[in-house]
């Protein structure tokens, strides 16, 4: 575009009529995108439940292979990160970009902590031949044949979730750069709010994954 870059803190983009209209549009776009995320993970949850009904013993065995302590730790980490993210949005709305920057930084550290725990969980599984493919799979490591399917769903669902965490980290760095440059104002904070929404959805998906995989 040839149009000069607008200062989003005080002005709206060329094709909108007002800053409020632009903010509302952005927010609705993020919500719709969240709907697609839920439909996508929804497919995996449906698959999980269907095979859970088909292979109940395998699902019990699969759950017992996972460490509920590590899962619980990660749940706490994510819940805390959702809190700091929500606070970051509030601070940006008040115009406190510096405070928001610190809060986003804490959120990012939580995301890293989550991935470190996940790394130890994954590598433990791979070490014990419990990754269900790529010549790593060791059939003698489990009693039920269906457990391999459980582990596939475990790796696919937590893997896709982990991918979303990593995307979230990327978004956090983008936010930190913009917060550092003081690009937001009480009238313009769409990006922070949008990433916040995204982060909460990623968190909520984990809230469902944790009991389904580790506890029941």
């Amino acid at each position: 575009m040839s149009t000069a870059k607008v200062d989003r803190r005080v002005a709206h983009s060329h094709h909108f009529d007002s800053m409020e209209q632009e903010h509302e549009s952005g927010k609705q776009g993020v919500w719709l995108f969240m709907a697609t995320e839920i439909m996508m993970f929804g497919g995996l949850f449906v698959g999980y439940f269907i095979y859970r009904m088909k292979y109940p013993e395998a699902w019990v065995e699969g759950g017992s292979l996972l460490s509920w302590k590590l899962g619980a730790l990660n749940t706490l980490v994510l819940l805390f990160s959702s809190f700091t993210m929500a606070q970051a949005v509030t601070e940006t709305m008040k115009g406190e970009n510096k405070k928001a920057l610190n809060l986003v930084m804490i959120t990012t550290l939580c995301a890293f902590a989550f991935m470190v725990v996940k790394y130890f969980e994954y590598s433990g599984k791979i070490h014990h031949g419990l990754f269900p493919g790529l010549d790593i799979w060791d059939p003698s490591a489990v009693q039920n044949e269906g457990t391999r399917l459980f582990l596939l769903f475990y790796f696919l669902m937590t893997g896709l979730h982990g991918f979303h965490i990593l995307v979230g980290v990327g978004l956090m760095f983008w936010l930190m750069k913009r917060l550092k440059n003081d690009e937001f104002s009480p009238k313009y904070y769409t990006a922070v709010e949008g990433v916040g929404l995204y982060w909460h959805i990623v968190d909520i998906i984990w809230i469902y994954l944790f009991p389904l995989m580790y506890l029941i």
Binding site: L32, A35, T36, E37, M39, M40, G43
Partner: peptide, 10 residues
């Protein structure tokens, strides 16, 4: 918006 993500996951 609602249906396409299910194709993606399939």
């Amino acid at each position: 918006v609602i249906a396409t993500p299910v194709l993606g996951i399939t």
